[in-house]
Structures are given as structure tokens and as C-alpha cells.
Design a binder for these strands. Structure first.
Lengths: 243, 243
DNA sequence: CCTTCCAATTCATATATATGACTGGTTGAC
DNA sequence: GTCAACCAGTCATATATATGAATTGGAAGG
């Protein structure tokens, strides 16, 4: 039984093509996070390569955090744990001082909308759906988000039921539209509150703001979301590793 | 010919012990960045392991950016390219609009000094040497830095000749004290200018400030430097990848 | 019914080996 | 002297294989 690589330049090394092939199968949702993918031996047999080559391909995907190895049990698709990323920036805790938690989200707007220039440049299209949310911890608003996603990829997004929206968008993208966000680039800068932003965040005009602009990419490195999030600079905390 | 692993728990896999051993040899400055380290075949022979095991050990060090492979030529120690990291935050250009460059540095203070609590906590000692610098681009001050390093590791630092100081400290740490900075953790927040900081940066009192607190670690993950850097928030730009 | 033990499955480590690709220097023809 | 061809050394890819370690599920036994 010899499965095919997904079309990709066959001058590339086998382990690279296998990695791409597996990434694509993961993106298609062929495997769930609960069940192991086929064993290394099976994959080797299926794609007619050696186990070593499979291991090297899987190594890559493990490195990219798409897969997770569990010795003795198998290799599993890693649930896209893109969870609290944005909230690493605002290290807030619930009033009781407990662990950080994912803030609740209030949907303010969701509509077909022409993307502003900077979002259009990042996404490569002006035909987008705009989402505006206010995120809060313990009823205190902490982050005001404007989000743009390409209308083409997310057609039907405007008509989703409000009940489908949880506090996190990326799982929704994946479940309803098969869009798996794999990485993102965040740009941080500093600004000042005004108008709707100030009002929603309950800040004074000109209050210092931390501004985070994010472009998110799917498995194929195609940009699938642009957003700008703003929160009070006073509460801003960010930690990063440099190597 | 069988070289020894540096003492490390011999229950660990061979490739891990070899990686540690090589890391230690790199840290000792046994190889320069200009000459290749011994070939994979030679290392395999010297340590009595297979080439595959050597490759896996070297893979690790390449991943950590300690080594760099050049097909056909060899594997080289990577010059600690910790250069412009801090200045990723302040994306400033020379007045002529040219590429970013490393800012010049004016030494303001260098003396044995008791570390403030937060630095002492990071470094594990209060017995430190304090360095204060003002960094400028095209004569415009952009960053005010206070740096603490453990007096024990850097004994003699106070008596270094001023001429030894270039714009970057990490090469100096390495050349004069054998301390190789491998990674660092940066904590970002926003604050307000006052006193000496405001004066040196030529900002008004209460001007918004970006604050970066960094702890730097050597190859053995021992903290070897703590610093706090401050610059005008207005010029602050930071980009990061999330995956 | 529960615990213990065992066997199968799976990933983890390690070796040995072969071939290809790239680099840098040497050789030799002109 | 110049330049092309060659060659030796090095990392890159790929295979085959063996053994160890962790997990799981079921059989055996009380």
C-alpha cells in the first residue's frame, strides 16, 4: 500500500514532503486530538519510506507544536493551544487572586466590512468580515479588539449563531471553517485612548494604551486574520524569551 | 582514542551527554567562530559513538543557535549574535534613514554596588557590579540602561580599561570573563519618566516610558546579568512571533 | 470484583552504512 | 597566468535494524 505525497516539488527531500503531507492531513482534520495518528511503522509502510524518515518528518511537526508524542501510546494531534496568547500581555487575575483565566468576551459587532488599509495589506484583500469584541475579567473590561477575517474563507460567518461564540475565536475558525491558525506575529506599540475605545475600556481620554496588532497565519502560511487589540498600558505586562 | 563526557548523569542518553559536553567545550572557547569544529566522523570516533548520535547532539546545539552547519565546509561555532536584540524594541534608524545600527554607548557609571531587591532575586546575590549607560543613535539618546552583574563572576570588571568597552557588553563578557550569554528573558511594561531617567533621555517628567527588564542566562542556565532599560514609549516598536 | 502480571504496541535511543550535494583546494591543459 | 576539471573532505538524506522504555489492555488468579 503506497499512499501519495500531496503535490509538492519532488526534488525536495522525502522527509520534507512527508511533513507537508502530514501537515495537510492534520489541517483537514483527518485525525482528532483524542486518537493517535498511525504509528511510525504504519506511516513508513504506507508512504514507502523508512521509519527514520517518518521520525524526521514527525520531529518537524512536533517542533512546530502540531503533534505531540506520547511514548508507549502514540503520536497525537495537539489541540491548537492558542488559547491565552493575547492574555499573556495583560497578566490579570480574577479578583479572588486565583490563576489567570481566559477573559469573557462580549460581541459588539459582526458584519461584512471593507478592511482598513493596514489590515488589507496584511490579508491581501479588502473584502473582510469585521468583528468587534470587548473582553473582560470579573466584569472589568480589559481589552478592546477589532478583528478582520477574509470574507472568502469565512463565508457565512456573519450568519453564525451568537451561541456558537465562545471566549476564543481560533477554535471556532477551526471547527466551522477548517481554518487552523498555526502562528501569529504580534506588533506591540504604545498609544492613547480616545472615543469608543476609551469609553468601552472605561478609561479617560488620552489615557496611555498598549496596542497589539496581530496577523495570524494558517498551516500554509496564508494570513487568515488581522486584529488590533487595545488595553490600558498601566496593566500591561509582557514576557518573552530571546535566544 | 576515547574522549570522556563531561561529568553528567550517565543514565542520560548518549546524545544528551554529548550535547552537554560539546556545549561546555564551546563555552570554554575551545573553538573559534572561524574554524570548523571536528567533523561528525571524528567526533564519533573520539567519543566512541555512532555518527547518528553525533548528528543528534549537534542538531540540538544548532537548534539552540550555538552551532551553525555549512554543508561541504563543516560545523562552526556561531558568534554569539546577541547584538541588536534590545534594539529590536526601539526600531530607530540613523537620521539618513539608513538601516538600523547598533547605538553608541556612553558609560555613566561602573562600580561595585549592592543590587536592588529585584536584581538580587534574579541573580541570587546582592554582591554585584553596577553599570549605567546611555545609548544614543545619531547623538540622540534613546535608551537608559542600568545593569547588574555578579561581582564574583566578573571580578576585576571595575578595573577594566574604558577602551575595552564597545557598544555591546556580551562580547566583552565572553572575551574577558568567559561568560557566554545564551538566552534571556525580557519583561516589558510601561511606566513614566522621572528624575535622572527623564533628564538623560531628554524627556519631560511623566512622559510615557517603555520599560524592559532583562535577565540573561549563560549556557548552564545560570543568571549572569540583570538589567533595566528605559526608552520613550512613543518610539517603542516590538515584534514577536507566536507559535 | 479487584489486583497482579504479562504481552503487544508504540515511541526512544543507538548503530551501521550507503549515497548525494556542496565546498575548497589542487592539478593540469592551454 | 587562467580556467576548467578533478578530488578529498564534509554535511545531508535515507535505509535497515536492534534494543530499551512507557503505556495499554486483557488474562489469570485470588
Amino acid at each position: 500500500m503506497s499512499a501519495q505525497f500531496t503535490t509538492s516539488d519532488d526534488r525536495l527531500p522525502a522527509y520534507v514532503r512527508l511533513r507537508d503531507t502530514l501537515a495537510s492531513r492534520i489541517a483537514k482534520g483527518e485525525w482528532t486530538a483524542e486518537q493517535p495518528i498511525p504509528s511510525e511503522a504504519r506511516l513508513a509502510e504506507a508512504y514507502q519510506v523508512s521509519v527514520g524518515t517518518v521520525r524526521k518528518a514527525v520531529d518537524g511537526l512536533v517542533n512546530e507544536r502540531l503533534l505531540e508524542r506520547r511514548q508507549g501510546s502514540g503520536t497525537f494531534v495537539k489541540a491548537p493551544s492558542f488559547d491565552a496568547t493575547l492574555f499573556r500581555f495583560f497578566q490579570l487575575r480574577e479578583a479572588d487572586g486565583s490563576q489567570l483565566s481566559i477573559p469573557s468576551s462580549k460581541l459588539i459587532l459582526r458584519s461584512r466590512s471593507k478592511a482598513p488599509e493596514i489590515a488589507a495589506a496584511a490579508l491581501g484583500t479588502t473584502d473582510t468580515i469585521k468583528i468587534v469584541r470587548l473582553r473582560s475579567l470579573s466584569e472589568v473590561p480589559v481589552l478592546f479588539e477589532e478583528i478582520y477575517i477574509p470574507a472568502e474563507e469565512f463565508s457565512g460567518f456573519e450568519t453564525l449563531d451568537d451561541a456558537d461564540f465562545g471566549p476564543l475565536l481560533y477554535p471556532l475558525y477551526f471547527e466551522k471553517f477548517g481554518v487552523l491558525v498555526k502562528r501569529a506575529t504580534d506588533d506591540l506599540s504604545f498609544g492613547r485612548a480616545s472615543g469608543q475605545v476609551a469609553q468601552q475600556l472605561r478609561l479617560e481620554n488620552d489615557a496611555p494604551l498598549a496596542v497589539i496588532q496581530r496577523t495570524a497565519f494558517d498551516i500554509e502560511n496564508k494570513p487568515v486574520e488581522w486584529r488590533i487589540a487595545r488595553g490600558s498600558a498601566a496593566k500591561f505586562r509582557y514576557r518573552t524569551e530571546i535566544t
